[in-house]
Design a protein around this nucleic acid. Structure first.
Length: 648
RNA sequence: GCUGGCGUAGCUCAGUCGGUAGAGCAGCUGAUUUGUAAUCAGCAGGUCGGGGGUUCAACUCCCUCCGCCAGCUCCA
């Protein structure tokens, strides 16, 4: 046996006998590292600690603090879950059990669905197996022998997986926990060395799934859980789940009286007074952003003859999501999108190259007949409005227009204190048009991103079939990502609708359409904002910006005067003149998350002041009314500091 | 659409073995005139999601439809 040289991350190297397991390298460095070691990266490939080093390689030991630890421990915990389930439910068949972004799951075929008590029992069993510190061991089994073993075990799904995934291989990789009797799974690994390192996991929920995610296949029961390398991370995650629950826009929407739903209008919100105020504030904000950017607002019909949808292709590709209306032997549809209406608008007169870009903005409602099972609060609805616009440009204007758009997106998200990231999606396998056109368009998008100084990730092949696109994800106050803005190039629809402009050469040319939205939909964006701010909207968005709270009846006249002056100054002010103690009124205003509570009593009435109480800062003392108005207007104007407000 | 869970007053929730429903908050009325997160008392409020069935009797058991929640799936 010869020697092999391993190179460590610090650049140093050492020599070990060929065939030494990577654990040996860790032991050679320090006993502490050997103890903390979970797996290793050998030439960039994640392997078990028992992996033998048979040639020179770069080696990095993976521990708790390595980025690879997360997926490693989740996957190993999924095995632990399966071990517990097969142990507790004899006859349970195992499906697949991958690690996910949030944790892990494992699918099982069982006689009856799991109930919450089952999950407790299962988690207890997992803790027990972890406490026993049983070794994970990789075994290479001859393929036929492995299939026979799983068949005997009553695991036909595993047999099927081996068949599909290891065709032509002699041996297949299986992992045992302790021994094949305790638990064995067909799996390429790697895994942590033993169950003892898996202490920080939590079983979360159960749900239905299908074998291979196909509803025609066998129904299975899925168990979700999560796991982290350290307890601190697990606790932080569970706290975040709690926090998300507290911020749930459905709960806050009711408590803050923003909107409601009724079973007779599934998937469509009833916007209450306060919600409507918020909605209009956003709509007008967007108008204020788009108008100076060269957009014009239009209103196009909500209902169109089927012929339009046949022309646009929606009839063929989107019909099952459209609400249909029969009228005088004609089939009509409520619009699910604005695009076709904008194309007809564009084509309503002859356009000159001098007019381009033409930017049509519209906020009218859209309806999409989403299947009932996917509806959810304001984030997945059947009726909504987009901050939609279509930019009609010449080929060589694409880069400029997209750059302007990127800057617009940036400006809008900054106003809400929402960090964001961009991704560029390029030509998919099936696409319309010429490769050269696509390449040209993609390079213009890249150049625009670069000119705007916008970092982005690349989603190769993820573009729409009619053109490449840039999508933007915002990250809310508790770290969740939401896709909102989109910029999509479209070469197909201008053809379908025979859109033209007259060029400088006095001949007809085809414009390019850019579909774009920044909020996405108002409904969804409001849901995101509610959760982002936890209902405590910054002043410029708050449905009620200030509430005047008189101490006693005798202050009612002065309090009314204060409210009227605030309203005259353009502030959304209310008056609480109920016969209640001041503490009661304050409590209510706090719960309604009103930014400013203005207490007025004898002292204030005499001096023409108000006592300002901030939602998050408490009593600020007596202030002249005009001074407060100036302050509040300034805060509205500058949009406050959303980050600070979100903490309040 | 599929699987599972859920649906009781405006809201949050009790309601045992089948004997036609309760609380707190909100609301209304009255008293109280209040100084920075809940004053007191009284009153009213329900086809127990809709429909059908079993039963002497159904919030309770069965069927069915609707809605909501979680997940799957879908997402031009």
């Amino acid at each position: 046996m010869g020697q092999v040289t391993v190179t460590l991350p610090d650049g140093s190297s050492r020599t070990v006998p060929a065939g030494t397991p990577v654990r040996g390298v860790a032991e050679g460095i320090s006993p502490r590292l050997a103890k903390a070691a979970l797996a290793a990266l050998v030439d960039g490939r994640l392997v078990d600690l028992v992996h033998p080093l048979d040639r020179d390689a770069a080696v990095r030991i993976v521990t708790d603090s390595s980025p690879e630890a997360l997926m490693l421990c989740r996957h190993s915990t999924a095995h632990l879950l399966a071990a517990a389930v097969t142990n507790l439910f004899p006859g349970a068949q195992c499906g697949i059990g991958p690690a996910t972004d949030e944790g892990f799951f494992y699918d099982f075929v069982v006689d009856r669905p799991f109930v919450p008590e089952d999950l407790e029992t299962i988690e207890k069993k997992m803790k027990q197996l972890a406490a026993e510190d049983l070794p994970y061991e990789r075994q290479m089994w001859p393929r036929e022998q492995a299939k026979a073993f799983f068949a005997r075990r009553g695991e036909p799904l595993k047999v099927q997986l081996i068949d599909e995934k290891t065709e032509g291989q002699r041996d297949v990789s299986c992992y045992t926990i302790k021994d094949p009797e305790t638990f064995v799974d067909f799996c390429t690994g790697p895994h942590v060395p033993s169950t003892g390192t898996l202490k920080t996991f939590k079983i979360l929920s159960t749900s239905n799934a299908y074998w291979k995610g196909d509803a025609r296949n066998q129904p299975m029961q899925r168990i979700y859980g999560t796991a982290f390398p350290t307890d601190k991370e697990l606790k932080a995650y569970l706290t975040q789940l709690e926090e998300a629950k507290k911020r749930d826009h459905r709960k806050l929407g009711r408590e803050l009286r923003l909107f409601t739903f009724h079973q007779w209008a599934p998937g469509a919100a009833f916007w209450l007074e306060k919600g409507t105020t918020l909605y209009h504030t956003l709509a007008n904000y967007m108008r204020g952003v788009l108008s100076p950017a060269g957009y014009v607002e239009v209103k196009t019909p909500l209902v169109y003859n089927k012929a339009l949808w046949e022309r646009s292709g929606h009839w063929k590709h989107y019909r099952q999501n459209m609400f249909l209306i029969e009228s005088e032997n004609e089939t009509m549809s409520v619009k699910p999108m604005n695009c076709p209406g904008h194309f007809l608008t564009y084509a309503s007169e002859t356009r000159s190259y001098r007019d381009l870009p033409i930017r049509l903005h519209e906020q009218t409602p859209l309806h999409r007949n989403e299947v009932s099972g996917v509806l959810s609060g304001l984030t997945r609805v059947r009726q909504f409005s987009q901050d939609d616009a279509h930019c009609f440009v010449m080929q060589d204007q694409i880069g400029d227009e997209v750059e302007r758009l990127i800057r617009l997106v940036e400006r809008v998200y900054d106003d809400f204190g929402l960090p964001f990231s961009a991704k560029l999606s390029t030509r998919p396998e099936e696409f319309l048009g010429e490769v050269a056109t696509w390449d040209h368009a993609e390079s213009q998008l890249r150049a625009a991103l670069d000119r705007a100084g916008m970092a982005y990730t690349l989603n190769e092949g993820d573009g729409a079939f009619y053109g490449p696109k840039i999508d933007f994800d915002v990250t809310d106050a508790i770290g969740r990502k939401w896709q909102c803005a989109t910029i999509q190039l479209d070469y197909a629809q201008p053809e379908n609708f025979d859109l033209k402009y007259i060029g400088a050469d006095n001949t007809e040319h085809r414009p390019v359409v850019i579909h774009r939205a920044i909020f996405g939909s108002f409904e969804r964006f409001i849901a995101i904002l509610i959760e982002h701010y936890a209902g405590a909207f910054p002043l410029w968005l708050a449905p009620v910006q200030a509430i005047v709270l008189p101490i006693a009846d005798r202050h009612a006249a002065y309090a009314g005067e204060v409210r009227d002056r605030l309203r005259a100054a353009g502030l959304r002010a209310e008056l609480d003149e109920r016969q209640e103690k001041i503490g009661y009124k304050i409590r209510e205003a706090q719960l309604q998350k009103v930014p400013y509570m203005l207490v007025v009593g004898d002292r204030e009435a005499e001096t023409g002041t108000i006592s300002v109480r901030e939602r998050s800062g408490g009593d600020k003392g007596a202030t002249p009314i005009d001074a407060f108005i100036a302050l509040a207007r300034d805060e509205v104007e500058t949009k406050g500091t959303p980050a600070a407000v979100a903490r309040g």
